[in-house]
Design a protein around this nucleic acid. Structure first.
Lengths: 341, 341
DNA sequence: CAGCGCCGCTAAACTGATTTAGCAGAGCAT
DNA sequence: ATGCTCTGCTAAATCAGTTTAGCGGCGCTG
């Protein structure tokens, strides 16, 4: 892999100058007194030889590697990882950095291994990412350098990037109010564990707060709230059935995520009800299926790419402490309409 | 990040030996004549100081970085990337390697940048991955070292890892034959471009070949084939409707991927037909939605994690040239039954 | 007792960059 | 002529490892 590369010494020799001169010219050092001609000769030589500095050698001296570690709990299981990584990748490239990826799988031994691996490689900073928005404990070993939490917070008050779930909740509620829904808005997906335990998820509580506060401000409250143990499609299905079994049918249902909404769609389809004619559905996440459903599901999108990007920006450009909330744009599709009666 | 680390010199000093001795002991060099006591002293010193070698310094000398570059065309858009990366990550960890990830986005300039970035960092090898199984052109710059193609082939006959789409096609056909389906098996998702142009996709042709050969061997042929421009759910929906408009209804439908199958489910639901009672559905990919559908969709799973894993194994353990076909296991859910009549 | 080989270990070179300290020569003032 | 500064550049140290070459002492042989 990449043998026969020209070294700085080669460049210097060809330019008829010392390594020192070549190094300074190529690094654009200010305050050096090298002549314009020397500059030209070095650039020409580097160009001709296709010179590229050896990062290992450089970082041995400078302790900078232009490498960022992206440590996450789980990358595969969730499709959201891709967005976070892609955003981080883009922002890294813009800053001439590269991403070293490791995964802890929530396992202490793996985490230990991952941390050592990245410290051995002298990364310039760490992005510590969680796949579900939550609070977590950061391993002390990485606190020695710059760290940004992605989709997570920690007791240490480290800089962190989070989706603005509360605002998203508000937008979802506002959307329904604007369509004229009032006293028959139901909710699917409250979950005692998820809401209460910030180590599992911060999203649920924030979304609910946004929804509640907005409705309350309009003098409205939820007509029903169905709890579900997890946020899977079968739970959405079951929840929607229990809602339909009640005496008054809701005019709109807010689902805490798209998987629940998907299950709700299935229950509504079986019951012969149409969306949004009979019932409007609104949700969170913007999973790819939201666009495949018929009608398309309106949902507040998790801005993963933006978040990944932001994390790198904060890590490298260092801008105070945050927390930074990234807006969740509402994807308006066809699942919301005015109430039928 | 990681200052104050003990160096080899520190270890040597504490052990009362030379750097040479310390280095040799810690690297487990054979044929050295250092005493058992010297070994012990070095290990003890390293332990006490929490010594970890500086990878940059080591690789400057050895030209090995214990780092693999994972270069892919697109990571975010597709959820499959996660599986490939996760598999590669696992296998890398087992071999004490780490993954440097870059993305070309199919853009020549980005690709150039990505290649330079990884060559500058002296990676030990490159995994060049495509998100859709296809043939591609490998940039000559990386041919200087070990390369494995993941989910792709190239004219250069490089080692490559591919899903065994043909066998998967055969399994799907066998499954239907075993249930007693014969002359009313239809197919959704042929696509002229995709099938013909290996730079776009190799999967379609291989799957179709597996299906055809198996049916032919049983003296059966497809009763209908519906082309669709892309493999999106709306195309599956449309295709299923055209199938249902025909005089004889198929007893089973094979969809070329799960998104098409999802659309087909929608069309069947609207038409008031049940799966698998009226029509069996079988598909490829094992997208997460396959499990969310009602009934669960039986589908031949793309073994992404296995593939990512295999690529690293081949890169590091070097085992001939391949190509290596990774089996696609059939996930049996509830969408297949014997024909009604 | 000279010569040889083996044992246990080390000094120093080497990798490819950055950075510090400083040198030779020119120009100028005293 | 001497001392000073400024210009334009370079030698050498440094980073933290690996690797080559070889050293001193001991035991054995001839």
């Amino acid at each position: 892999m990449g043998r026969d590369r020209a070294t700085l010494a080669d460049v210097a020799r060809r330019a008829g100058l010392s390594k020192t001169a070549a190094s300074m010219v190529l690094n654009g050092r200010e305050g050096t007194r090298l002549s314009a001609e020397a500059h030209q000769r070095v650039f020409a030589a580097a160009e001709e030889l296709g010179y590229r500095p050896n990062v290992a050698a450089r970082s041995l001296r400078t302790r900078k590697t232009a490498t960022i570690a992206f440590v996450s709990d789980i990358v595969a299981t969730t499709r959201f990882a891709g967005g976070l990584i892609r955003g981080a990748l883009d922002a890294s490239r813009e800053r001439d950095h590269v991403l070293l990826i490791t995964e802890t799988q929530g396992d202490a031994a793996f985490e230990q291994y991952a941390i050592e691996a990245i410290l051995d490689r002298q990364v310039d900073g760490v992005i510590y990412a969680a796949m579900a928005t939550r609070r977590l404990a950061v391993p002390p070993a990485i606190l020695g350098g710059p760290v940004v939490l992605l989709n997570a917070t920690s007791p240490e008050q480290l800089p962190c990037v989070l989706p603005d779930d509360e605002r998203a909740g508000a937008m979802v509620a506002e959307t329904l109010l604007a369509q004229g829904h009032r006293d028959r808005i139901a909710l699917i997906g409250r979950n005692r564990q998820k809401e209460r335990d910030p180590e599992i998820s911060l999203a649920a509580e924030a979304r609910l707060r946004g929804i509640r506060d907005t409705l309350t401000a309009a003098g409205v409250s939820l007509c029903a709230e169905v709890f579900s143990p997890e946020w899977l499609s079968e739970h959405g299905y079951a929840a929607m059935r229990t809602l339909l079994d009640r005496p008054t049918r809701p005019s709109a249902v807010i689902c805490m995520n798209d998987r629940l909404a998907f299950g709700a769609y299935q229950a509504l389809g079986e019951a012969g009800l149409t969306i949004p004619g009979d019932i409007s559905v609104l949700s969170f996440d913007d999973d790819p299926i939201a666009g495949w459903l018929r009608p398309g599901l309106s949902t507040a999108a998790l801005p993963h790419e933006q978040m990944g990007r932001r994390a790198v920006e904060i890590l490298l450009d260092g801008e105070g402490k945050g927390p930074w909330l990234v807006p969740m744009p509402l994807r308006r599709r066809r699942s919301v309409a005015a109430p039928a009666d």
